[in-house]
Amino acid sequence: MKRPIFLAVMLLCMMPRSFAIEPVWAINVSAGFDFVGATQRNFDFIRAFRSNETISGARDKTIGTYHLSIMPECYLTDKFSLSTGLRVTSAGSHFNSDYSFFYFKAKEEGLNTYYFRINSIQQENVYVGVPLEFRFTLRGDGRPSPYFRCGTTFNFRCTTKSTINYTKRYHDPTASIDSKDIPTADNFTLPVYCAAGCQFGHHNSFSVEITFPYLVLAGSMSGMHFSDGLGGGLRMTYQFLKTKSEN
């Protein structure tokens, strides 16, 4: 009976010192861009581009996003950390056809139907989100250290701006489409991503990472597209105000 207790106490004493360290905090400010594969949606107000291409012609497109974040990071061990915070993301998309323009059905009034020739529709959706990320750093001793990150962001849409580019050659400036008629992106999106990067410095540090894969699990960041493809990106982070470990 005494021997198992003695062994358990020995094992506890042999546990890695790192689990006994008080959590270390830091503040991260980061900026980056990501792109995600997308498919143009079908709309009943856009004339088909070609035979049997559903309606609007599904084409390989991308949605480009830029983001800026401020994120406190908590080092649970000297290698493993958790961060969250606030992120502002701007997602831009571009809708067009294979031809120089496409026909947009603006309205129907009795026997009259009105089309406009449109070059493209550009849309920018701005989201405010709460990221949640886990990071594993290979070295925590201040030398340049590779790391791996995975995470998600709970994005909530704030604003949408749609710009309609009319075909200048034909456009009658006295008539136009109300941009409110252009569908907006989903109010909530949930991108998930993994990343690999390298951190330079210890208490104040700088890191660069490549994000891949990047995919949107819920919602779409464009009213004109489905965010249904894979993507990736690049992020740079400056870390400061790192508290020192007490051990």
Binding site: Y103, E108, L111, N112, T113, Y114, Y115, F116, R117, T167, Y170, H171, D172, T174, A175
Partner: peptide
């Protein structure tokens, strides 16, 4: 259905 089709404000065709 017959539609008078206006494209960019100009009568183009009857659908």
């Amino acid at each position: 259905r017959i539609q008078n089709l206006y494209v960019d404000g100009k009568f183009e065709e009857s659908i």
